[in-house]
Structures are given as structure tokens and as C-alpha cells.
């Protein structure tokens, strides 16, 4: 076990520390608790007191939310869009990350800086020509076209993250495979890819999360009721005037729950991936 230094021995300091940390915990959880609590309450009771325990549990909030947000259609759309994006990002980014990490081409530096630069490009810088261009080509309400946009936006992040995984592989392994007569494609697919598969899983999780939650692109490019994502249909449902907040919170919970379950199960991967992609590897 690694020896860790105690920074403070004083008991009073420790109590104060835990008090402040707990207050922050309560502030963080308060809106999320309201989401969960009110998802099972009748609208009338929410208007009376959003903090009160449910007098009656209205489980039909969920069935009505499922119907009104047309989740059987929009959830499926979200799943297809998310899955397509994950596949596109993971395949294209692992190829690029390998070449950049191993400096296989002379211009690796330029490509790396170009990709770093595009991670910070504002969406508005390319959104308008892209929208009107796609409209002309009939690509509005096209799930695959949106998956391509997500791939362009998310892949620099994926490349930077995967790059660190490729860097960790000893060069000898690659050289040994080459001596054994493997060609460059075999080295990549048979030797390198299996080793970085944990990294690819992390990328898949985070890209999946981003695509599932994304709003701006989805609401702009997928407006048709046949193609919209779950988040956009939630947004439209919750924007109506005669708002039943019990139903809206139930719809919110349906979208959030699978994400939270995955996060709790794989917290380390999520946190390391999201933190690692924006900071250094």
C-alpha cells in the first residue's frame, strides 16, 4: 500500500472539512432529487409544494411521458444515432491516434495541432453553411449525416485520448511483430488494437454520452418527428404551455436513468476519460 501523508491531524478541522463537503454534496444533489421526487407526483401537488413527499404515487406519469414524448420512436432514433457515432468515431480515431502517437508520418505535428485547433472551434463558425449546404443536398433529418457531424466534432477529443494509450505500448512489441513478417495493417489490427481496447471502450462511453445528450446540432438538423432524438422531443414536450411538470420530470428521468446507471457502474472510466481528454493525457 502506498503511504499517504496526513495533511491535517486536528479533529475540528476534519469536522469542518466534512461539513463543507457535505453542504456541496447537498447543493449538487438538490435539483436532481427534485427531478426524481416530482417525477412520481401529480401536477397539482407539485404546484402546491415541490419539496413535499408524494401523497399519491403517479406511476402513470411515466406511461404518459413515454406516449407524449413518443419515446418508442425518439429513443430508438437516439440509440441509432449514438451507436452510429460511436462506431464512426472509434474506427476513424484509432487509426489517426496510432499514426500520430507513433509519428508514422512527417507531418504528424501539423495534423495534431490542426485537430487540437478544431476542438476549440465554435460550432457557429461552421453551423450555418453546413445547415444550408445539407438542406440543399437533402440531408436534413438524416441520422447518418448528423452522426458524421458528431464524428467531426468529437473525434479530435477521441484522437487525443487514444493517442496516450498508444504511447504507453512499448515499441519492441511492434518491432517484434514486424520481424515476424506482419504487414503494417496486421500490426495495427492484430497487435496494437487489442492492447488499446480499454481506451477504445472509454472513448465509446464518452462519445456515447455526448451524442445521447447533445442538443444544439440535434435540434437544428433533426426537426422531423420521425427523426428527432429523445432529448429534443423532451425539450419540445417541456416547452408546451399547459405544462404537467410531473410528466415532464418523468420524461427527464427516462432519459437520464440509463446514463446514471452506466455512470455509477463505470465511474472511473467516465471521469478519467472526460477529465483526461480536456487536460493532458
Amino acid at each position: 500500500m502506498k503511504h499517504e501523508v496526513k495533511l491535517v491531524e486536528n479533529r475540528a478541522t476534519l469536522i469542518l472539512t466534512y461539513t463543507v463537503l457535505s453542504i456541496a454534496l447537498i447543493i449538487t444533489l438538490f435539483p436532481i432529487a427534485l427531478l426524481v421526487l416530482n417525477s412520481v407526483k401529480p401536477a397539482a401537488q407539485i404546484v402546491q409544494n415541490p419539496l413535499a413527499w408524494p401523497e399519491t404515487f403517479r406511476w402513470d406519469n411515466f406511461t404518459r411521458a413515454w406516449e407524449d414524448a413518443r419515446f418508442s420512436q425518439t429513443m430508438l432514433n437516439s440509440v441509432i444515432l449514438t451507436a452510429t457515432t460511436i462506431v464512426l468515431v472509434c474506427t476513424t480515431s484509432s487509426l489517426t491516434a496510432y499514426v500520430l502517437a507513433r509519428r508514422k508520418i512527417e507531418s504528424w505535428k501539423i495534423v495534431t495541432f490542426y485537430l487540437l485547433g478544431t476542438t476549440t472551434a465554435p460550432i457557429q463558425l461552421f453551423l450555418f453553411p453546413l445547415y444550408f449546404g445539407f438542406a440543399k443536398l437533402g440531408l436534413i433529418n438524416n441520422t447518418f449525416a448528423v452522426a458524421l457531424i458528431y464524428t467531426a466534432i468529437f473525434s479530435p477529443f477521441a484522437v487525443m485520448l487514444l493517442r496516450t494509450y498508444f504511447l504507453a505500448i512499448p515499441r519492441e512489441l511492434e518491432e517484434a511483430a514486424q520481424i515476424d513478417g506482419a504487414n503494417h495493417w496486421q500490426v495495427f489490427t492484430k497487435v496494437m488494437l487489442p492492447i488499446v481496447s480499454p481506451g477504445i471502450l472509454t472513448v465509446a462511453l464518452i462519445i456515447g454520452l455526448y451524442s445521447w445528450n447533445e442538443f444544439l446540432i440535434a435540434t437544428t438538423f433533426l426537426q422531423g418527428s420521425e427523426n428527432m432524438t429523445a432529448v429534443v422531443s423532451f425539450f419540445l414536450l417541456s416547452g408546451q404551455y399547459s405544462s404537467d411538470w410531473g410528466e415532464i420530470m418523468a420524461a427527464a428521468l427516462i432519459i437520464v436513468l440509463p446514463v446514471v446507471v452506466l455512470f455509477v457502474l463505470l465511474q472511473r472510466r467516465f471521469i478519467e476519460g472526460m477529465a483526461g481528454g480536456s487536460v493532458k493525457g
Binding site: A24, L25, T28, L29, P31, I32, L34, L35, N38, I46, P50, L209, W212, N213, E214, F215, V231, V232, F234, F235, S238, S243, W245, I248, M249, A252, I255, V256, V259, V260, F263, Q267, F270, I271, M274
Partner: peptide, 19 residues
């Protein structure tokens, strides 16, 4: 503390707005 980061902004916005 990290939890709000994984929830869709559209949902968080509506929770704060309505609740």
C-alpha cells in the same frame, strides 16, 4: 460532484426552470 456533468443540458435547464 461530477454527476451533473453527465446529464443532458436540456434536462438540467428544464429542472431548474420548472422545479
Amino acid at each position: 460532484y461530477f454527476l451533473p456533468m453527465i446529464i443532458a443540458t436540456a434536462i438540467l435547464a428544464r429542472v431548474w426552470q420548472g422545479m
